[in-house]
Amino acid sequence: MIFVTVGTQLPFDRLVRAMDRWAADHPGQEVIVQSAEGDYQPQHMHCEPYMSPDRYAEVLARCAHMVAHAGIGSILTARRSGIPILIVPRLEELMEVRSDHQVATANALRGRPGIVVCDDLASFDECMDQLLAMKRGPATMNAADPSLVTALQRFVDLGEFPD
């Protein structure tokens, strides 16, 4: 099963529409989308505007691949669960988000294992092929760099930043 999520703050119809078109061409694939109430109504995949934490966990446990906006929450969730993820950055010029930070995030993550970046939906099908060729890996603990935790700890405990 492929889990599509656009986060909880804003809809992302451009991605949902591309995914619906892909699902129409691949009727054997089960697709579940969390859509944050966009205008576009998907015809070829199961759609839920929002998910409870329990439902989210259930879908994550069952899916083999994720497709998402380039939001940090979605990316960290995929990494923690060992799920290969295709990310499509939201664009400011299309009013999908309030700045182009997702483009910068996607560029910074390009080439990392388990991540496919799709900047242009014209290449969506090829990106999906790349994604589906990846296998779900073991779950890992997300953790901040120990150096960051230590720096924050020292600052709170001692009021200093080692630099």
């Binding site: 940090i72 990316i75 960290l76 993550l109 997300n142 953790a143 901040a144 760099d145 120990p146 150096s147 960051l148 230590t150 720096a151 924050l152 930043f161 630099d163």
Partner: peptide, 8 residues
């Protein structure tokens, strides 16, 4: 502005 690592 300091950098001591990140979460990603």
């Amino acid at each position: 502005i300091h950098c001591a690592g990140g979460v990603l």
